[in-house]
Design a protein around this nucleic acid. Structure first.
Lengths: 342, 342
DNA sequence: TTGTAGGCGTTATCAC
DNA sequence: GTGATAACGCCTACAA
């Protein structure tokens, strides 16, 4: 950044023949201002192309206009949808979005985040799952006085700090859909251990099975880690079973794609021989063959709500603070589910 | 952000019994400093947990430590890979990444970007394709004194402002691979009109066809727009041809997935009846069945190089400015290509 | 090697 | 309504 001769508030004040403070008042829409004066100042501002310096504002106001997005790359589409949702809200404000991925797994993760928060002192941060499930992180934000909103698969914080989807209910609905289609042996490809989303989705599966009076068989539940390959491994295991499950619910689309992949390799027809449901409704779901029945959760909507919570009240578009914090997911029915044979 | 009693440089100075300037020197690693004094100040800093305020620094230095990322959502995976690559470089610096998606199509796009640049005055910006192809944008950065690096499918700016892949060559290689496999009727699903990447990839296709002495048939070239559905439409058109093409090169993976999708619908076997090659090596490519042969370009590497160019010299890790600016893509051979039948 | 004075561009205080 | 004056936290002169 060179020495660009950007005009300052002083230039405006001098040329308009008023004091800095008056210009400041114009910028900040102070109501007690002579209309003439305001007009004059506004003209000068337009003429000079003056733009207030955010750094200086931040310094004087002892606060800045940065919203952080902290995540651990849960999946590209999700991160981007979140960014998009948040930016839709931020666009009309003076806030900017600064992204800060971290490395779950790293033992210094919490310290890293602490450093980030202390350095930048963002006005607020949005935390994506799975690290949003870490209560210490939330506590850290609290201590440092940084607003935060967590995104998760269940309400795990107070409403002002949370946007949650109800994964359990959504999965129950999905599995019920399979049951209604006549399936009795339904496999579950679980998400990784320790993830709240994985836990909730498993609970949803179990609730549906039990509510239908079907036996809950441990062999039908296989551990995955949300990655494609783990879906393949799980499928190997499930399809080796005798009798074979006639349907599989995978806790996310990637793993569902893995299941589909293996079914194909084995010469099975989907959905005739095996019905599959995924979760997330990532683009891959609709691009697979057959298109995947899956659960769509309203990520962008949740992100917008989160951004609104973060900037609401002081500083942002003074929106209702009572933004919804629980969002419902919907089952997207495509071609990967068929009635159970026999 | 509440009134947190974060210690300032003054607190440190007072407690350490030195002047602000001395503390400042410690922070900025000034060499001319008594070791004792330095030690004493450092101790106080550690004790207080003092962290310099970036806003104040930015103000005093008349520059900030923000790197912008401007894009128009070309595709989620790519944007995220870029973010990751850039952040790897930025992590060890005092720079932060601030993302700024824009809306190509919007008539006010250029104005929007101008506003963003004038408000934030980022130290530098990275511009992703396709908007990186817009020369006016680059000019705008130049005028405003904002460093910039463009990412593109061909060198369309001077080295310090460019990280480019050589799409033409990469595609030529891919199509040659098809030709070597015995294919003579090879379809092309083009990218959208006006995109440099689309143009380069088409040229690569044409060069390979011509170099092999094959006829360049206009009916084998179908327009797409980089989206899945357009790949499907293109496939419909290509597969209606008589005789049918035995192979298709699609200018990106999403369209290739669309082609695969339609081939399936028509009961064609891939790759026996139809070979397909895509471009990008997005996750979808390896998750499809059969896994897609495609061209991988080193996005993260390019992003790292770009970030290095942006922060190099003044302010950043004083790296060589002579970072590479042309990167080679490689053909990833998977299962969607087979020798031509007959 | 260290300190003093002044400025970066903005806002808050408190007079007029 | 408006304008001096003093912050905000840091850095660059220039002295000492």
């Amino acid at each position: 950044m060179k020495r660009t001769n950007q005009p300052t508030i002083n230039d405006v004040a001098r040329i308009a023949g008023v004091s800095k403070k008056t210009v400041s008042r114009v910028i900040n829409q102070s109501p007690l201002l002579n209309a003439d004066t305001r007009k004059r100042v506004e003209d000068v501002i337009a003429e000079l192309g003056y733009v207030p310096n955010p750094q200086a504002r931040a310094l004087a106001l002892r606060r800045n206009f940065l919203i952080g997005l902290i995540h651990d790359n849960p999946n590209a589409q999700m991160v981007l949808n979140v960014q998009q949702g948040m930016l839709e809200v931020l666009r009309d404000t003076e806030f900017e979005l600064i992204v800060h991925p971290v490395n779950r797994g790293s033992p210094t993760m919490l310290a890293d985040i602490g450093q980030f928060l202390e350095r930048q002192r963002p006005f607020g941060v949005m935390i994506l799952p799975p690290i949003s499930e870490n209560d210490q992180m939330a506590a850290l934000c609290g201590e440092l006085g940084v607003r935060y909103v967590r995104m998760g698969s269940a309400p795990l914080d107070e409403a002002p700090h949370m946007v949650a989807s109800n994964d359990r209910e959504a999965v129950r609905g999905a599995v019920e859909h399979l049951i209604e289609s006549g399936h009795k042996r339904i496999g579950l490809v679980q998400g990784p251990h320790g993830f709240r989303s994985a836990f909730e989705r498993q609970k949803g599966y179990e609730e549906a099975i039990e509510a239908a009076g079907l036996p809950l068989q441990r062999t039908l539940i296989v551990q995955g880690d949300y990655k494609f390959e783990s879906g393949m491994r799980a499928a190997e295991q499930l399809l080796d079973l005798a009798p074979r499950p006639t349907a599989v619910f995978a806790s996310n689309d990637e793993m569902a794609a893995g299941v589909l992949h293996v079914a194909r390799q084995r010469g099975l027809n989907v959905p005739q021989d095996l019905s599959i449901i995924g979760f997330d409704d990532t683009p891959i779901a609709s691009h697979l063959w057959p298109p995947l029945t899956t659960v769509r959760w309203p990520i962008a909507t949740m992100a917008r709500a989160a951004a609104l919570k973060l900037v609401s009240g002081e500083g942002g578009t003074a929106e209702e603070d009572g933004e919804a914090s629980l969002f419902v997911s919907t089952l997207i029915r495509r071609a990967s589910v068929a009635p159970a044979a026999g």
